[in-house]
Amino acid sequence: MMVQPRNLKYRVWTARIFMILFLCLIMFPFLMIISVSFRSGNFATGDLIPSNPSLEHWYLAFGIPWENADGSMTQPPFPVLLWLWNSIKVAFISTVLILLLSTTGAYAFARLRFRFKESMLTAMMILQMFPAVLALVAIYSLFDQIGSYVPWLGLDSLGSVTVAYLGGLALHIWLIKGYFETIDLSLEEAAAIDGATSWQAFRYVLLPLSTPILAVVFILAFITSIAEYPVASVLLQSMDNLTLAVGSRQYLNPQNYLWGDFAAAAVLSGLPISIIFLLCQRWIVGGLTSGGVKG
């Protein structure tokens, strides 16, 4: 380590204080929402640490009716856990499909030779910039049509949302392809000489070596699916079919403002997703930077 300048101490302290202030600013919404979730009523004000905490909103978030002080019962306003379950189902299945398709696709783009490969890759790169948001009318009509032949893929079905998310795989193909290209080609050649078919070389050599990037893509695709709002909001209609992202919006209607209930539901549903993300953040950061830098 270099010999540091003499005023280093002041600089460190300035930086540290700035950092702590900034973190307070960043953390404010989270702390506030946790605090709000323990206040009774939907319009209660109070300190950051509630003076008389109540589990009212948490009961409702878990779908348990809450008995008020005057003996009346408050029914849970929305099926939060069902929405969370819907989100997880959709996200899990679509992610598995995305992973499957983008891995095989990336393998071909990284390793095999075929016509139009370069133009296909360029097309993928440009298409990934067009999010589904831009063509919602078309997506709506598409699933309307599909639904008249295959009802479980029609409008207002979780199947339709799951399938619609497959459009997002162009980006992941690029990510995985970039990683495959860092793996020495002679490993697969060695496998071929060891008697492996190209499928076996892919399955037993390339795939096991790519688990880090597959994990990254899995988590990224999963979180993207969970947090997706526009497509789901257009395709899903009935209360029981909503995903969390679409459903949560119902809490903050001006006509029916359920701030406290929302707080508990938000913490309940946001916590597991955030924890998964933070646990895997090292991988995700690696994947994002390598994918980003390599393009």
């Binding site: 696709g105 071909a108 075929f114 298409l127 078309a138 598409l142």
Partner: peptide, 26 residues
């Protein structure tokens, strides 16, 4: 060699390319 890319291309064309064209048509 196209076997590996066909499903991915299909997904991209149905859920990105087709909606784009359809939208312009609408």
């Amino acid at each position: 060699n196209y076997r590996y890319v066909f499903p991915a291309l299909l997904g991209v064309s149905i859920f990105i390319v087709f909606p784009l064209i359809y939208t312009v048509n609408v």
